[in-house]
Design a protein around this nucleic acid. Structure first.
Lengths: 233, 233
DNA sequence: CCGGGGAATTGAAAATCTTCAATGCATCCC
DNA sequence: GGGATGCATTGAAGATTTTCAATTCCCCGG
C-alpha cells in the first residue's frame, strides 16, 4: 500500500480548499473559514488494487472520500458467503456509518488503483456542530448511498443472469467518464449479482463473442451500450 | 382510506410530546420548546391494507413515521418489472428522500393495517435549521435505512429460494413484538426475494408441511425459528 | 349457509443456473 | 523467453427455478 501522507493538519485543509474535485466531495459547501476548524490531518492516500480500507465489524475512525477508482463494499454472512452490496466511485463516501459511532457494516476494498481522502471522524463531527453548511452535503451523501443500494437491488439482483450482467456492464460504463471502464473479475461480478463465478463468466464470454463487449487489456473494456440495453428490456 | 386528521398544528405537536412511541420516532431528541416551532399540522393517520402513501416519481410533501403495521417500498424498472426493496416497521421513516427535495424513489404501500404520522417536509426543515437536536436522530434514520437495504441484498437476495424464504420469515418474525407475525402474500414474497410467486408458494408450502410454519389466519403466522435458522446455515 | 373470486397450491416440462472438472489464456517475474 | 500462477472459459450433468395451466383453498358478502 502506497501512502502519501500530508503531515500538517493545516496543509490538509489547505489542500481541501483547492481540491480539483471539491464540487464533488463532502466539503463542497464549506466556507474558507470553515476549513480553519479542521484540527486533525486529512490525508490523501493512494491504494493499490485489492487494498482493504477497513473491515466489517471494525471501529471506524475515518470516513473516506473516493477521488478516483472503484471501491467495493463487501458484506459477510454468518454462513460464510459474501456479497458485494455496492460500488463506490468518485465523490462517494465510505464508512459513513462511522459518523454515528457504529462499527463498519462492510469490508471496503479497492477494485482498481484508487485515490482516497481519509477524513478523521472527529473532524466531521466538529464541523457538523459548528457550521450548518455540512448538513445538506451529508444528507445528500446518505441519500445517494441509499438510492445506490436500492438500485443494486432492483437492477443487479433482479432478472436472469444475462440481464444482471448486462445491467452491471451498463452501470460500470455510465460510471466512467472515459469511454472505457473497469471490468471486474468474474468472481467479483458474481458476488455483485448473486450468481456464480462461472455463470458470470459464461454470460460475459457470450457478450464478447457477440461483439457487445470488447476487453481492452488492463482490466478495462468497452461495451455496445445499445445492444446491452436491448438485452435488459 | 380512513384518515383521522388533527386540525390544529399545536394539537399535532402536543400529541407528539406525549406520543407513546416517541422514543422510537424522529422527534425523540426534541425539547419541549422545540415542539413550539412546529407550525404545520402533523397528522396521525390510519391506513387500510394496500393503501399507497405516495408513488415513485412523485414530489414528496411529507415524511411518514410508521407507528404500527408494515409498509413496503416498491421500485419499478423501465421494463415493467417491480421489486420490493425494503419493509418499514415501527419507528421507520418513509419518504426520507423528500428532505433533500428529491422525488420519491419508490411506491410506499401499506401491507397490513398501518398507523402512520405524516410530517410536512417544511416542519423538519425548519426544526433542522433552528435546533441541532434533530441531526443525530435523522442521521440514525439514514443509517438504519441504509443498513436495512444492505441486509436486503445480503440476506434476501442471496442464496437459493429456500434460504431466501427462510430468511424472510425469520426477519418478519424478529420484527414482530408478538410471537406471531404478518405473512405477506406469495406474490409480495416473490417481489421481495427476486423469485416467482410460484417458487415462493412452493417453498412456503413445504415449510408448512414440515411444521416449521403455521398460518394462524388473518395473514398472520408462527414459525419454528430454530428449524428455519438451520435451513439458512 | 352458500357461492364467487382472489389467492395459494400443485404438477409437468422447459429453461436457467450451479457444480465440478478440465483446459486455455494472459501476465508477471525472473 | 519461459514457466508459474491466477483467472477465465468451457462442457456436461445435475439441481433449481420458471413457466403455464389446472385445481384447490379460503374468506367475504349476501
Amino acid at each position: 500500500m502506497k501512502e502519501i501522507t500530508i503531515d500538517k493538519a493545516w496543509r490538509g485543509a489547505e489542500r481541501c480548499k483547492n481540491c480539483a474535485i471539491r464540487h464533488l466531495v463532502l466539503f463542497s459547501d464549506l466556507s474558507h473559514q470553515d476549513f480553519d476548524r479542521i484540527h486533525q490531518p486529512i490525508d490523501d492516500l493512494e491504494y493499490e488494487p485489492g487494498t482493504r480500507l477497513y473491515h466489517q465489524g471494525e471501529e471506524l475512525r475515518y470516513v473516506y472520500t473516493v477521488r478516483s477508482g472503484l471501491i467495493k463494499l463487501v458484506q459477510h454472512l454468518p454462513n460464510g458467503t459474501q456479497r458485494i452490496v455496492r460500488l463506490l466511485r468518485q465523490g462517494d463516501l465510505a464508512g459513513l456509518e462511522g459518523l454515528g459511532g457504529q462499527v463498519a457494516d462492510h469490508d471496503a476494498v479497492t477494485l482498481d488503483h484508487a485515490s482516497v481522502c481519509r477524513i478523521p471522524v472527529p473532524v466531521i463531527r466538529d464541523l457538523q456542530r459548528e457550521t450548518p453548511n455540512l448538513h445538506d452535503s451529508l444528507m445528500r451523501r446518505w441519500q445517494k448511498a441509499l438510492s445506490g443500494a436500492d438500485n443494486w437491488i432492483t437492477r443487479l439482483s433482479t432478472g436472469n443472469a444475462r440481464q444482471r450482467v448486462a445491467r452491471l456492464l451498463l452501470l460500470l460504463d455510465e460510471a466512467s467518464t472515459d469511454d472505457s471502464f473497469f471490468l471486474p473479475t468474474r468472481e467479483d461480478m458474481g458476488a455483485m449479482l448473486g450468481i456464480t463465478t462461472e455463470s458470470a463468466s459464461k454470460v460475459t464470454a457470450d457478450f464478447r463473442r457477440r461483439g457487445w463487449l470488447k476487453p481492452l487489456g488492463g482490466h478495462r473494456a468497452w461495451i455496445d451500450a445499445r445492444a446491452l440495453q436491448e438485452e435488459v428490456d
